[in-house]
């Protein structure tokens, strides 16, 4: 199950997000890292330092692209210029698969730069799946969609979030980037059982897993990516591995970013769960 058509039959191991404060360390020390995830939009530029750094990274490491602005769930059609730039980057990085979020974030050409939750309706699922198919056909690379963390639910919803995710990925015939931290955050904000979510998504479609830290406030939890991974999320990660098998996993740390070593060590904690899972798999 881990190497599947949604991650282009790769087994990449444990990766971390490529972030500006770590550029120097990575380029100078060349640490051993299974793979890096880049935010596609940060490199969809026409020149300068970002592309120079990317090319240097590509000489040494496997890179997977993760997007934040495709907005498959927006009512607008996909932005053609965005897709063209993204395709240029896909050719540059040779990313084995590409991910973006199951959300909306733009309307009438105005961008919120946020990952906004969708009403879980059949109409929305159909339109979103059509956008994902169109993007995959244009980009010619497998796509995994990521479940987002959310702080609001809609009266209009006709199903649960995990049913909606399943509906979309089945209709689009695409993969899932399963973010276990996002499931945990949303479960606390919306009072559902995160394990019911994990148990009820199509496991054979999971091409990648995200883990991250979050912040607790009095009345809700915010997905801040500025902490180590918390224990309940590690437990969910272990359960996810039982369900989907050893899968390319990435630690997200985007704010108050500590040293490269600290981030990498936190990511490598995932290995203990992976090894435990491998022990239980019959030979």
């Amino acid at each position: 199950m881990p190497a599947n058509r949604f991650n282009n039959f790769t087994e990449l191991g444990i990766g971390i997000g490529l972030r500006v404060p770590h550029y120097r360390h990575i380029l100078e020390k060349k640490p051993v890292v299974d793979w890096f995830e880049i935010i596609s939009e940060n490199f969809m530029v026409d020149g300068g330092r970002p592309l120079e750094v990317l090319d240097q990274i590509l000489e040494q490491y496997r890179v997977v692209q993760h997007g934040v602005a495709m907005y498959f769930g927006s009512a607008d059609r996909l932005n053609r210029e965005h897709l063209k730039k993204l395709k240029r980057l896909v050719r540059r990085t040779n990313t084995p698969w590409l991910s973006d979020h199951l959300c909306w974030g733009s309307v009438d050409g105005r961008y919120t730069h946020d990952l906004l939750p969708m009403p879980y309706t059949f109409t929305a699922a159909k339109a979103t799946a059509a956008n994902i198919r169109a993007a995959r056909d244009f980009l010619e690379v497998p796509i995994c969609v990521e479940n987002v963390s959310s702080y609001a639910e809609f009266h209009a919803s006709e199903m649960t979030e995990w049913e909606f995710l399943s509906e979309v990925v089945e209709r689009a015939d695409c993969g899932i980037l399963l973010d276990v931290n996002n499931i945990y955050v949303s479960s606390q904000n919306h009072n559902f059982d995160p394990y019911e979510y994990l148990n009820n998504v199509p496991h054979h479609r999971v091409g990648q897993i995200h883990i991250a830290g979050h912040s607790k406030f009095e009345k809700y939890i915010l997905d801040t990516h500025d902490h180590p991974v918390r224990d309940p999320v590690w437990k969910m990660y272990a359960h996810a591995l039982e369900l989907v098998g050893k899968t390319a996993t990435l630690l997200e740390w985007d704010d108050r970013i500590p040293s490269f070593g600290e981030v990498h060590n936190e990511a490598l904690k995932a290995n203990q769960f992976v090894e435990k899972e491998l022990e239980t798999v019959p030979a």
């Binding site: 969809m44 530029v45 932005n79 105005r110 961008y111």
Partner: peptide
């Protein structure tokens, strides 16, 4: 408001 996919 922003009319671009990037905050740049």
């Amino acid at each position: 408001p922003s009319t671009s996919f990037t905050l740049r």
